[in-house]
Design a protein around this nucleic acid. Sequence first.
DNA 1: GCGACAG
DNA 2: ATCTTGTCGC
Length: 229
Amino acid sequence: MTIIETPAGWPANEAEALAVQDELRGRVVLDEPGPAPGTGLVTGVDVAYDDARDLVAAAAVVLDARTLTVVEEATAVGRVSFPYVPGLLAFREIPAVLAALGALGEAPGLVVCDGYGQAHPRRFGLASHLGVLTGLPVIGVAKNPFTFTFEEPAEERGASSPLLADGEEVGRALRTRTAVKPVFVSTGHRVTLDNACAHTLHLTPRYRVPETTRHADALCRRALKEAMA
DNA sequence: GCGACAG
DNA sequence: ATCTTGTCGC
């Protein structure tokens, strides 16, 4: 369990955060296919909060992409560095996520995070921001549609429908379990949307949300409780 | 202007 | 995200 340090020059308010998104947005890479699904390593990251005590805990869980077994885990705890503001989630989560990723003893491979990447009001959600700062391939799998409207995908697992913004497909509502509410996939950095959806399906052999986020979610909650005790 | 809004 | 009991289902 390492300590989270807020990066120097981290935005102190919404105006500064918006300026940072504007500045970094152009560094996103969208023309790389990304790693092949089912090969190499896949790392899930997630963050838990206790705003009353100003505490935050993050977890990074590395899985073997082929077997979906846990290969390594890392956690980090510290103080909250930004409030939750829709559209600025990255500024709240990234310091913690970077600390957890940095505590790993090996390269994370593909990173899967909760939230959006390109499917974002300014095309620079958490997954894209994390990708630009780390240089790693990153995708975002969100549990809620945020501000996007979408057509209900067919009932079968694997069915999807586009998330549109200005007529462009910035993400997909993807059914990972038959007859169950879809998840919302978008690419963050160095991965194609098709590939991001393929990865998401590989990571959901049994539950609606990816194994990576299930492990990371459980671990960061555990880390937060330990930090309080 | 008001409400909605990833986690 | 988080506050929270029981409950239906595989």
